[in-house]
């Protein structure tokens, strides 16, 4: 056994939707305190991988270990209790509920005992949300909704934060702002696994990255390595070799 086992260790993971095989033998690893990014084209299986870490869909083969413990096949709510949280693709905030109620919902796996301090922390991270805490979440701008989705995930005090395309549909400046905040979140000791289409910024931010093609890991390496890789440059950064 190594000195310290990785926070998240995925081995030979397969996942399928009926006849469609969405993941083929995916293996990857996230160490404590890292930001690890997963990039890939539309339909590569990024969201599927993120969701199957959360038990939905259940992997058809392979193993997911979290803190050395096999969590493959655990129900979603049990996995959330272990300290994994996610901000799903497309934000999926609760539009009719107020900003603050959305945040309270995020605290569900933990119970309500820390909500005071945790709300303050989230509002420090996202002062915008504090100004709008009584606003109906559906009326927030796209960037604010993404902040809310991330803040909501943080309310369960996760050790591992799973983010699915936080830059989706956001202006470059807003994306930069959100990525800067991801850096701050990492500085507080939360590990981040970031799924992105925005390969350039994601690879700049991340320590390590993986490239997913057709449900299988094609490349892996440090953020700089991948940014310099000709295949990545051509396919994901739009630079002709």
């Amino acid at each position: 056994m190594p000195e310290q086992e990785p926070l998240l260790d995925i081995q030979q993971l397969d996942a399928r939707y009926g006849a469609i095989q969405a993941l083929r033998g995916v293996s990857l690893r996230v160490e404590r305190g890292e930001i690890v990014t997963l990039i890939g084209a539309n339909g590569a299986g990024k969201s599927t991988l993120l969701m199957s870490i959360f038990g939905d869909p259940r992997p058809s083969a392979g193993h997911i270990r979290y803190l050395g413990r096999d969590i493959t096949g655990l129900p979603t709510h049990a996995i959330a209790k272990l300290g994994i949280a996610q901000a799903p693709e497309g934000r999926r905030i609760f539009p009719a509920m107020r900003v603050e109620e959305n945040l309270l919902m995020g605290a569900t796996p933990l119970g309500m005992q820390h909500i005071d301090t945790d709300l303050i922390k989230v509002f420090e991270l996202f002062p915008r949300l504090k100004e709008r805490r009584d606003q109906r979440a559906g009326t927030l701008s796209g960037g604010e909704q993404q902040m809310l989705a991330i803040g909501r995930a943080l309310m369960s005090r996760p050790q591992l934060l799973l983010l699915d395309e936080p830059s989706l549909g956001l202006a470059p400046l807003v994306t930069q702002r959100i990525f800067a905040i991801l850096g701050e979140i990492r500085a507080t000791g939360t590990t981040i696994f970031l799924v992105e289409q925005n390969a350039r910024q994601a690879l700049k931010l991340a320590q390590r990255g993986y490239v997913l093609v057709n449900g299988a890991i094609r490349l892996s390496g440090s953020g700089e390595e991948l940014l310099a890789n000709p295949e990545v440059r051509q396919a994901y950064l739009g630079i002709r070799a």
């Binding site: 959330a80 609760f94 509920m97 109620e101 919902m105 995930a153």
Partner: peptide
């Protein structure tokens, strides 16, 4: 209360509920 808020959250977005680890 948390139960009631969870009911409303379920109405709003069931997938989001699952993503938050709500049973």
């Amino acid at each position: 209360m948390p139960v009631g808020r969870a009911w409303e959250a379920l109405r709003e977005d069931e997938i989001a509920c699952r993503a938050l680890g709500i049973n």
